[in-house]
Simulated scan of single mutants.
Amino acid sequence: MSRAKPVFGNNKELTLIVNSVYDVTEFDYKGELDFDSKINIDGFQQFIAYNKKMLEILDFVSHIALVDSTVLITGETGTGKEVLAKLIHSLSKRKNKPFIKVNCAAIPENLIETELFGYEPGAFTGASPRGKKGFFEIANNSTLFLDEIGELPLNTQAKLLQVLQDKKFTKVGSPKLIEVDVRIIAATNRKLEEMMEKNLFRQDLYYRLNVIPIDLPPLRERLDDIEPISTYIVQRMNNKYGFEKTLSRELIEFFKLLPWKGNIRELENVIEKLLVVVPRKEITKEDFLKLERTKKSEINPKQLISDCEKEVLLKLLSSSKSMRDMANKLGVSKATVIRKLKQYNISVHK
């Protein structure tokens, strides 16, 4: 087993990272771990990592955090992209400024430009008479985290490219250039290379964003992290709800056999549900299997609708020439199709 511990000087600057390697045959695990590999100093984000690849990523992050180069974090949903972005900010020279997060998928297409870049008073019907600062202006001298960057419409991608190149932008309704000093960290669970081939993502923007690429592995490839992460989640939930519960050895080993398509987020959801539902102090594998059987036996109308939507999307995906063709067949906008594909974690390989 290996783990890393950051060491900070008196000024709270990262001085070095100590990597330790242990022969696990020497340990008799009792269900309690001291989480030296958690970074939790004055608000530093927690990131539990015993897995070799994850420790290499954290070591890499400790170096690149000190520069202002743009970072592109990729990985499946629930792998910890936002947590890693916050860690980079916390280790950077910008750490005393707010970490600004924008979920590009959550902002309607017709509002994304004004949200990112702001607008002048009276720029359009319904605009505030005071105007509005955009996220880039708010994040000046700090870090701007653009989550779900693959959902940005093409016209906004062009303006984002301008900011990355020139460090300047214009508000909606104004010709005046505003200069900003912002570090960009972008994240996506989409395959941007495939989106470029379909002209859904600008190639020049991709190369501007992909200066420092970090690809987070899914939980199923981090089997040695499942136990410490599970233990940490249990401890946190125990503190939250006043429980004194544990997971059985058999259950933890069983967790290592599961695919965890939702990754850490799914693991956390499952553990919280077990702790709340099961009345006993020790949660067993049988408790988990019983919970899964109950879930499958329940008839959920929303789930039935979701299953039907997903089936239709999968069938149309194989018979459509493009996203626009698919949208036309469904009678919806292309943005809706893209959002639904993301919602159901459907990869586009065409």
Rank of each mutant, 00 (worst) to 15 (best):
A105G: 03
E179P: 01
N10K: 10
P259A: 06
L330G: 02
H89R: 10
L289Y: 00
K52I: 15
L223I: 14
I39R: 12
A158G: 03
I39D: 14
I149M: 09
D28I: 11
F254T: 04
K5G: 02
A49W: 02
W260P: 05
H349E: 08
E26M: 13
I112A: 06
R220C: 03
M237W: 11
F288M: 04
S174G: 12
Q303L: 10
L275G: 11
A158S: 06
I48L: 10
S142A: 09
T188R: 04
K240W: 11
I48A: 12
A49P: 04
L14V: 06
C308W: 03
A327S: 01
M326Y: 00
R183M: 08
L164G: 05
G134R: 12
K350D: 03
V18G: 07
M196T: 01
P108T: 07
E268W: 10
Q157P: 02
Q303N: 03
K191S: 13
E282L: 12
G126Y: 12
Y22M: 08
I214H: 04
K302L: 10
T231H: 07
V276H: 06
N141A: 11
Y241D: 10
N40P: 07
V21L: 11
S319R: 08
F60H: 12
G134V: 09
P228V: 14
L84W: 10
K334D: 11
E221I: 01
I338A: 06
